[in-house]
Design a binder for these strands. Structure first.
Lengths: 220, 220, 220, 220
DNA sequence: CATGAATGAGAGTTCATTCAT
DNA sequence: TATGAATGAACTCTCATTCAT
């Protein structure tokens, strides 16, 4: 754990000696970034404030100039994701006109995000963490929205009138678990994963792409 | 948390002063049961050995007569589940002759288990835990086996020749997330959940049961 | 404590942008006043420099432009009281010609001061402080002087040739403890308290005013 | 402060390897004794739990096996004094038949106790503590009782019908301040102090013992 | 000068773990 | 073997103090 934290440690000590406010914003960033990494690595429950600080070049007291607890950092991460990631996802879904487009939008956007930000859904390879850290703020952020969008899609006839909560759960579950499977492969192929998930949801297992390990998909 | 642990506390203090070996095995049981409850409540990462002890009528030192760490308790829980739950699941899958039967076996067995043992997959409603505790030993146990069975099913032509890891991930993800959704409803309807998941995997969203909130599904 | 400090907070933020020296002296004042309030509230031992700063509109660093520690503020408070309060007390004592006048001067001046500046001898009603804050700078200031005056009074035959230290201690003790008792009553009646203490010292308990709760003493 | 704590440090490491319960009671004692010393030295407000621990040969965590906070130690000290010291004081007062006896009982018992347990009312010679530590548990204990006894004495005609709160305050104040004065002298002469205070209360300053510095009282 | 962010020592407290009983 | 007190490392958080702006 010691070694791992050292690895996570922010070493970019390059502090532009510019203005005070700049440095302050920069430190906030440093802490948030460190927190994201550490949460992803150890999970929210197991990480301590000190873990976050240790993943930072800052002094321990400094943390408390920015956040009052690890909970508050977490919320901040969540909030900033809400501002950054979810709008795109949502917009993609709302603009769709066919079920295919809707489902595809969900998975493509999701897997693309995960592939681009591996830490966000980091598969925990450590001893006891067994599955995708689903409680990572970046990822958690859009659940409610997805359900709302599914309900809206059902309302406008885009999706069949089925149980929206179950459907949301199914999509979320597939997204997370497949994201982990995808990340275990190098290179991660977001396209293939999205194609697989989309096919599953559109036609069931019978429609799934043949063969496929995600590296050299034969389809479409 | 104090109050919650008190609630979790094992109160069956009745220790039959019978045989030594019995008492010994009984303590092991007491610890395992307490650990299962506490893991389910707080998550693996956040629970401490002390939490487990406190959920027990035993003394702190006694814990170490049985386990060396919370990790070891976790593995023990995993192991005993492997012995108890997985064989049934596995057998159901191996005996199937159609894709329908295979998929249905997976989800029916899973949701039935979750409905019968809510604590095993307890959706954490506490502050920061957002999703199903996927790292609960009872649940984690059969993943590898499912993948192996899927590979076997593909090999014998029961399932289409698709990516077995992705398919496993998709089934696992759907199972966990839907289990959580199911548990939020009272009464939990394992049948409805299994029907939904099975339909999804067999025919995609177009095949999903209409309407349905899990309580009074319209489809047969 | 948070709330209490807020209450103590100096809000007169109106800083006339006039002269520099003025502002400087003003800050010193602001800090001293805040320190007096906070010392009175929490006691010297328990208050921190931060507490003082928080009771101020100033920045933390500013404190150190004026004082090097809470100790130094304390001494400053003491010093300024020495200049302001003690001369009056002393003068009253030195002018007396009878024991009655001497004793009366001591207690009247003291209780009048306490009644007029309740914070100076604030009876701490907080958790653990049980008695008058005897270490409050305003109050501590004149002890030595009282003893000197008592010695002088003995020397000039005004007081009997008794142990001056014990007599000083007795007067001081009565003054402080009675001040606290007085402050617990509303309205504080400095006259009654002074009358009581004076009578005690002049004639012992046999001479004490009858009845009397300090509110409506029967004796004139 | 470092050095002082070392001096206060309990070095009697002689732990009779007897029984568990014994050791436990012994540790409780060790902590209470250390706390008494440290409270007396630094005052309640300024002492920290760690100060208490440092005045002990015990480990930091051990403190919390016995008390939850410094407040709780304080209360425990208070309670045990209530059991040990106050009954004697009280009994002495209740048995008296004359004002002389009553007043004398108060001061003799008090000064005798202080002389025998110097730490209880330790005059703080440290930088900022100016007066007797009146908030020391041993001493604080009997205040309420004294007032009750005074009220009872007034009721049965033993004391004149004066303000009981003021009289209590006066006696308490004299007792504390004179105790400090007494302690500054070597050897402390409890008899002389009691005589002085008693005379003051019975006859006022006119009745005070002549001369007297407590060392070679000319008495009666 | 005033500011207030940064610092790291140190406070209060809990923890995993040991070991005498 | 069960117990639970002792331990000291480690955690959360606050403090006094500095110093770039």
């Amino acid at each position: 754990m010691e070694a791992e934290l050292r690895r996570l440690k922010e070493t970019s000590d390059i502090r532009i000696p510019g203005k005070r406010a700049q440095a302050k914003e920069q430190n906030r960033r440093v802490i948030l970034d460190a927190a994201r990494r550490v949460f992803a690595e150890f999970g929210y429950g197991a990480t301590t404030v000190r873990d976050i600080i240790r993943a930072t070049p800052l002094a321990s007291g400094t943390f408390y100039n920015y956040f009052r607890s690890k909970e508050e950092v977490f919320q901040a991460l969540r909030d900033e994701t809400a501002l950054a990631v979810r709008p795109a996802l949502r917009e993609a879904r709302l603009k769709t006109e066919t079920p295919e487009a809707f489902v595809s939008a969900v998975f493509q956007t999701f897997f693309a995000h995960v592939a681009a930000n591996p830490a966000d859904a980091l598969a925990i390879t450590r001893k006891h963490a067994m599955h995708v850290r689903v409680d990572t703020p970046e990822i958690v952020a859009g659940f409610e929205e997805l359900r709302e969008d599914i309900e809206a899609a059902i309302a406008r006839g885009l999706l069949p009138p089925t149980d929206p909560e179950f459907l949301t759960a199914a999509m979320v579950g597939v997204a997370f678990e497949m994201a982990k499977a995808m990340q275990k492969r190098a290179p991660a192929n977001a396209e293939a994963a999205a194609r697989f998930a989309t096919a599953l949801f559109l036609g069931g297992i019978a429609a799934l792409p043949k063969q496929g390990n995600g590296h050299a998909p034969s389809t479409h």
